[in-house]
Design a protein around this nucleic acid. Structure first.
Lengths: 247, 247
DNA sequence: CCATGATTCAAACGTTTGTTTGAATTGCGT
DNA sequence: ACGCAATTCAAACAAACGTTTGAATCATGG
């Protein structure tokens, strides 16, 4: 399989300098950044290793040396970014719940715990939060196999954590209904910031000016909060809705 | 470039038998169905022509013969499905507005005009509506160029039509705010039914049983209606939100 | 009933894909 | 300064990609 003569990467883990510092320009990091940027821009399957390495100023073989394969590269891109983001989200939720001293949080607070870490992502060694969301929306609709294994592991813990908080915030909403509404919510999130392009395509309207990521979040929270605590849908009685299916 | 010896397709339009009937098993149709199914399942860039033709029981060259190129194939897939769907949507909205006799529609009615044609899509020569939405969500996050030209043309008319109706239904919501909320709404739609897989990935919960597309729509309408007429977000005053950004 | 045009087919086209190789190059430890 | 391991590099690999070709097949209209 691998490990021919010199010690390669891929199988084990990061080979890294000797142990500590990375004094050189760290090709690994540049590859991750370039891959993230390109995956976001063109999708996973449509981005070639040659584009990535060229964008990173590295040799073509660098990806397979540092990561082992293209699939392992994208896996690491998501692991790093999502791990950090979700850690911040859970920490933010913990903080809010501690401050609430046992009282259920407001829906808006829970939403802010989800959204705020996205805006603070500028601190991170890499790009801004909106880009990450765009990457995520892309990832969800491209379960080619590379992500099928990594996304659940990154999200399962976070989702059940926020689901618990939301259940306490909305005790009147049945569990199954709440599950769907949170599904709708995540959809809105990943699409809202991800699909800025798609919106530009669809809409005839220009909302170019003055709407940065923070402004979008400020608009998202009331929208989602209202949806989450909407009155329950009518129970399925018998006939269809009035005057709809006609013709 | 093209048109070497025998009359090919591609450039002009459908070559079709002589003029009328399609007595044979119509490879064209089988190719469109297979392409739609596979694009939905694996994405556009990740689906090869060999997979499509094999799935359709046709020869590899059939795609280039009937459509001219892979890009033209996907274009036709979307044109046919989206054209029919959006026509039904606008017709449904027209019907409702005619019945309302000049009075503004309820938000829920407008949403049903958007969603109901999705459920009736079973009548269409092809598959069910949920599959189409899944295909759409995929398309929006894959603007590789093939769809960049076709999606706006299919959607622009419909969006401004529904935007007008929604503006009349929600006169208290400012225009820019409403634009964003409709953006959020479309995101929820395409993700809600599209990402059944993604949800299965994310959630630890099983909502397998008893939730067909109609049930999802019944849950979606109250969620979206509440979000669309949510109270307006707080105007940007001065300081940040209380107790959020704290390290 | 043959001739014609539409359709199918097997095979190959030239690119581009991800990956591998083995030799240069680099940078640190002793 | 030497040597060793980590890294970079140019070049090639086989495989898969979309596309093209020219002959075989089919169905029909004159």
């Amino acid at each position: 399989m691998a490990a021919s003569k010199t010690g390669r990467a891929g199988n084990g883990r990061a080979p890294r300098r000797h142990a500590g510092s990375g004094r050189t320009a760290d090709t690994r990091e540049r590859l991750l950044a370039a891959a993230e940027s390109l995956f976001m821009e063109k999708g996973y399957a449509a981005t070639s290793l040659r584009e990535i390495t060229a964008h990173a100023g590295a040799n073509l073989a660098a990806v397979n040396y540092h990561f082992g394969s293209k699939e392992a590269l994208i896996r690491e891109v998501f692991e790093r970014r999502l791990g950090s983001l979700n850690a911040h989200r859970v920490a933010c939720l913990d903080r809010l719940e501690a401050a609430a001293q046992g009282k259920p949080l407001a829906v808006e607070q829970i939403l802010e715990a989800i959204l705020a870490p996205l805006l603070e992502a500028g601190q991170e060694p890499l790009a801004r939060g909106a880009d990450l969301l765009r990457l995520l929306g892309r990832a969800f609709s491209e379960p080619t196999g590379a992500l099928s294994g990594i996304l659940p592991a990154q999200y399962r813990q976070v989702v059940i954590r926020f689901k618990q908080a939301m259940t306490r915030a909305l005790p009147e909403v049945p569990d199954r209904e709440l599950t769907w509404r949170m599904h709708f919510m995540f959809g809105t999130l990943s699409y809202a910031m991800a699909g800025n392009d798609a919106l530009h395509l669809i809409a005839t309207c220009n909302l170019d000016g003055g709407d940065d990521a923070a402004a979008i979040v400020r608009r998202l929270i009331p929208f989602l909060a209202a949806g989450l605590r909407a009155p329950l849908p009518a129970v399925r009685t018998s006939g269809a809705q009035p005057g709809l299916k006609a013709a």
